[in-house]
C-alpha cells in the first residue's frame, strides 16, 4: 500500500491533508530510522489519518548546524523550509524526530513559521485515546520495557508522559532507569555530537546510558528519537547483548503489537 503523497501532489489534486508528516534526515536516510518511518506511516494509514510528506522539498531543519554554531547554514535551511511549508499552508506537523520537533516548534516561529507541531508519541497517544488506533494482541503484556527519555522531547520540551502512556497501553511492565524524566541521561548524540568523534574521556556517553538501561533487566529499550536509537543500539551491541535486548521506537512497538 504505497499511496503516500507529497504535499505537491496533494495540492495538485486540490487537497489539504490533516497533517504533514515531517520525516527528517535520519528517518529518510538512516536504515534503522527508516524502519521507524515506515512503521509510523503504516500506523497513520491504519488509523485513517490523511497525511502528506514534503519528499524532495524537505530539507534538514538545521538543528545540528545551529547547535554546532553555524547560524548561516541554519538560517538557509530553516528559511527554505518555512517558505515551502507556508506555500502549502501547513497548519499541523507530526514528526518522529524530537530534534526536528523542537526546531519546528520552538525555533521556526521567529522565522515566520507558525505551526502546531506534535511529536509522533504525542500523536500516537491521541490516536489511541480517540480510539482511531486500537491495541490488539498483547504481545508485550508483562514484558519488561525501559523507556529512555530523549533530551529534546524531555527536558527541552517537557514531554514525559505521552510516551509513557503509549507504553502503558501496551500493558507492558515499564521499569524506569534511575535517571529518568527531568534527570534523564543524554544518549550522547545531541548538539551535533552525532557527526563527530568524542572528546577525550574515560567512556562514551552511550555506554554509560546503555549500562543503566541494561541494569533494569529490561528486554526492550524503548526510544523516541532516531539518534538515541543509533546510540543505544550501538551500546547494546558493544555490550554483546543484542540477542537478549532489543531497541525499538514506540511506533514500532505499537505496530508489532498489532501484528
Amino acid at each position: 500500500m504505497s499511496s503516500i503523497k507529497t504535499m505537491a501532489e496533494l495540492a495538485a489534486e486540490g487537497r489539504t491533508p490533516e497533517v504533514l508528516f515531517w520525516v527528517g534526515c535520519a528517518g529518510s536516510f538512516d536504515d534503522r530510522a527508516q524502519r521507524v518511518t515506515v512503521a509510523f506511516a503504516k500506523l497513520l494509514q491504519q488509523a485513517g489519518v490523511e497525511f502528506g510528506i514534503l519528499g524532495q522539498e524537505e530539507a534538514c531543519t538545521g538543528d545540528p548546524a545551529r547547535r554546532a554554531g553555524n547560524e548561516f547554514l541554519f538560517q538557509m535551511l530553516a528559511q527554505q523550509n518555512v517558505a515551502v511549508m507556508n506555500m502549502y499552508e501547513v497548519k499541523r506537523i507530526v514528526t518522529a524526530c524530537p530534534h526536528c520537533f523542537n526546531t519546528l516548534k520552538n525555533e521556526y516561529p521567529a522565522l515566520g513559521g507558525n505551526y502546531e507541531v506534535m511529536h509522533h508519541t504525542q500523536f500516537l497517544q491521541q490516536l489511541l485515546a480517540d480510539g482511531r488506533l486500537k491495541i490488539e494482541g498483547g504481545q508485550f503484556k508483562g514484558k519488561k520495557i525501559t523507556y529512555h527519555d530523549s533530551c529534546y522531547l524531555g527536558r527541552a520540551n517537557g514531554v514525559y508522559e505521552a510516551p509513557r502512556a503509549v507504553l502503558q497501553a501496551l500493558d507492558a511492565d515499564l521499569v524506569e532507569m534511575k535517571r529518568c524524566r527531568t534527570n534523564g541521561l543524554c544518549c550522547g548524540a545531541g548538539g551535533a555530537q552525532m557527526w563527530k568523534e568524542d572528546e577525550p574521556g574515560d567512556k562514551r556517553i552511550n555506554m554509560e546510558r546503555t549500562e543503566e538501561a541494561l541494569a533494569t533487566g529490561a528486554e526492550i529499550v524503548a526510544v523516541n528519537c532516531p539518534f538515541c536509537m543509533t546510540m543505544m543500539s550501538d551500546g547494546v551491541k558493544a555490550k554483546e547483548q543484542q540477542e537478549r535486548v532489543m531497541v525499538y521506537d514506540l511506533a514500532e512497538l505499537i505496530l508489532n503489537n498489532r501484528g
Binding site: 534526515c25 536516510f29 557527526w195
Partner: peptide, 28 residues
C-alpha cells in the same frame, strides 16, 4: 563537522547520500 556542513549545504541533508528522500515509501 566539515562533512556535515558540506552535505547540509549541498544536499540539504545531514548526510551525503545518493538515495532519494522518500525512498522509504517503497517499504510501506
Amino acid at each position: 563537522w566539515l562533512p556535515l556542513f558540506n552535505s547540509l549545504e549541498n544536499s540539504q541533508a545531514a548526510w551525503a547520500v545518493s538515495t532519494e528522500r522518500d525512498g522509504w515509501k517503497r517499504l510501506v
